[in-house]
Nucleic acid binder design. Structure first.
Lengths: 181, 181
DNA sequence: ATGGACATGTAAGCCGTTACATGATTTG
DNA sequence: CAAATCATGTAACGGCTTACATGTCCAT
């Protein structure tokens, strides 16, 4: 159950409300660990009972009150302990691959259209990652030590998207008999 | 819920028992869609109620009786319909990436050891995929049409593992300050 | 006035994992 | 004699999604 740990990482970087965490999961952490706001609220509640985080209610006028969560020493200890455990290889699930495997049992044109669609999505995500990299880590050889982990994760995202794009191109080349684009 | 569809693809390729399907999920389909035998049995039961598959009990001596499942016309129709739907991008989950992001909050040596471990796992899987490719598709330019989908999926696995390996190497280079291996 | 951002939740239900259960045959 | 393979399931539990619920402020 690494959602806890993803939340702990996020809170170790900066305290925030459940709402803020949900947005961070949309924009950054969520690139390698997805979670909805509903689930984040639920897990935050449990983590507070477990003493991994504390919350402080901040009264706002004109806006709903908010609960700012912060990581505790126990939370930091749990996070540190988590890093000592071997990673379980995540079971991967790709309905796109299932669809591709079903090529002979389905609608070839629809699948091709889907490949084009996937390609565009990956291109978009790659562009987003590359923009982030240039913006936040313009000089990767002079990184603040605190940035090394996040930078390497972003690099993983970049080469992952590049590979996904190459895969789409290879599929299109073989199925459409020409180089794409 | 693409497990159904993964099962349908598998049964469209060849009929088989729940047990056999579970092993195929271990060896081939499972490379892009994981499922345990317990879950496969459960879903097969539902799929039979829904008329997507039929089963025939085969009595064996010396061995437990087995139920051989086969795809029905309704199952084929469902599979064909599935291929016309746009793929939902699977939310990716990587506890390894969470760990890497937690580099500054955890045990650097343990994380490095984990990277080495992951690298070995990916190398192993890549070797397995490459062996499969050579064995089943020695001449990719003269594929049986029924093999094109499976071949392209395998290609995706291969370049995915290559990328994972490169990522590990990049991490090790940056964290250990030298080329790995 | 409509919609989006801010802010926090509950409820229902499926999906999936882990553990348990059984029992014969083949292989080392 | 022990372990793996063949073969099929049930039960309990937790994770996660989808839908629902509420209410204010700000910008267009």
């Amino acid at each position: 159950m690494a959602l806890e740990h993803a939340i702990l990482v996020s809170l170790a970087e900066r305290s925030g409300t459940g709402y803020e965490l949900a947005r961070r999961f949309d924009a950054s952490i969520g690139n390698f660990w997805k979670a909805s706001h509903q689930q984040i609220y639920k897990v935050l509640g449990r983590m507070e009972s477990d003493g991994l985080v504390t919350s402080e209610v901040v009264v706002q006028d004109g806006r709903p009150d908010k609960k700012v969560y912060a990581i505790t020493d126990a939370g930091r200890a749990e996070l540190a302990h988590f890093t000592t455990e071997p990673s379980a290889p995540e079971p991967l699930r790709s309905s796109f691959a299932v669809k591709l495997r079903a090529l002979e049992h389905g609608d070839r044109d629809a699948i091709l259209a889907d490949v084009h669609r996937m390609r565009a999505l990956h291109a978009e995500k790659l562009a987003y990652y590359e923009t982030s990299a240039e913006r936040f880590y313009p000089d990767p050889d002079a990184l603040d030590p605190a940035d090394v982990g996040p930078y390497l994760v972003l690099r993983g995202g970049i080469i992952g998207e590049q590979t996904a794009l190459s895969w789409c191109d290879e599929i299109l080349e073989r199925l459409e008999g020409r180089a794409p684009r």
